[in-house]
Amino acid sequence: SRKCFTFPFPTNPDNVSYLETLDPAEISKRFLEVTGRFCQFIFDQSQVKNLKDGHTVTGRVLGHLAKTYVDTISSGAVPCLENAVIAMAMIENEAAFQEGFEVYQSGMEKLKNSFPLELNEITLEHQCFSLMATQTFMKRSFRDSDGKYLETINHQFDRYLWDNEKASEAKCENLISVLSEPMTERINQGFYARIAEVLEKFLQQKVAVTTAILQADDKLTENERRICGKILLEQEIKAQEERQCQLEEKMATEQQNNEERVRQVIQRMEEEMLFQQQETKRAMDSKLREQAALMENGFQEKANKMACEMAVEEEE
């Protein structure tokens, strides 16, 4: 059954062309009364409107659809609901993308103040904020299929890893500078230069000892070179292992994020499918009631025609 409202003229017929600029005092009281009852009915009894995919038609969504329709008609084209929905979906998805990305970026920017951090700490926080952002995005997104949102999150995560690495380098440089400051100050004061002069005089007095020391120093240098080479090789291997570990952790994180997004998409699809089934059942029940009413009132031919239409819909 449907509830119908008959609206009287909002004002004198001569003023209809000027409704947008009309003074509120010139609007008919009768029109305002009917409008009030209509709005009250919508607020109290009317069901929430949904698109066929189950997306709720909020005031914002309705505004997008209405604007698309008006723009299409103004251009001289024939309005199409599906095209309007596609245009609305693009607008909504872009807004959903911005909302979700802001959630992620806001959390990671606060974390950035604590850089440098261990990779596992950053990864855990990234997963947490990424999940929150994905949930925010999914609440508003509609017919999202290009995956642009997730790619942007991953690219942003790469930038935060780079920022963390640079912060680590800066901290190391600062620490080295602090530790070497006393030595630098002594060099500037010429402390080590005086020691060198004393050593040179001593070596001149002890030529034989000097020769032995230099020979021992050469051997020591060779040993040190081998030791240093071994240490550098071990450090390089360790650095490669750390880079490999970082890469594996990053790939594991991306896989988890992808799996979570797929899970949410599947959940959304199941909800939409359930909604469509409910809508189909509701429409069928409504038609059955209408058919019964036609038969009761003697409109057998129309009732039979409606029965045929319902049979075709069930087959589809």
Rank of each mutant, 00 (worst) to 15 (best):
C4D: 14
T6Q: 12
T11Y: 05
T35A: 14
C39L: 14
I42R: 07
S46L: 15
Q47P: 11
D53T: 11
L62H: 06
Y69M: 06
Y69D: 15
Y69N: 09
V70P: 00
D71G: 02
A77F: 08
P79Y: 06
N83K: 13
V85D: 01
I91R: 14
I91V: 14
E99H: 05
E102N: 07
V103I: 10
G107W: 06
L111Q: 07
P116E: 03
L117S: 02
L119M: 07
S130H: 02
M132C: 09
K139R: 15
R140T: 10
D146C: 09
Y149R: 00
Y149C: 03
L150G: 01
T152G: 02
I153W: 00
N154D: 09
W162G: 01
A167C: 05
A170E: 11
K171M: 11
N174C: 09
M183E: 08
T184I: 04
F191C: 03
Y192G: 00
A193F: 14
L203K: 00
A208C: 03
E222K: 08
R226L: 15
G229T: 09
L232M: 13
E241I: 04
Q244H: 08
Q244Y: 07
E249H: 01
K250T: 10
K250W: 00
M251E: 03
T253M: 13
Q255D: 03
N257I: 09
N258M: 07
E259V: 05
E270R: 06
L288R: 15
Q291S: 04
M306E: 04
A307G: 00
V312A: 14
E315G: 10
E316Q: 10
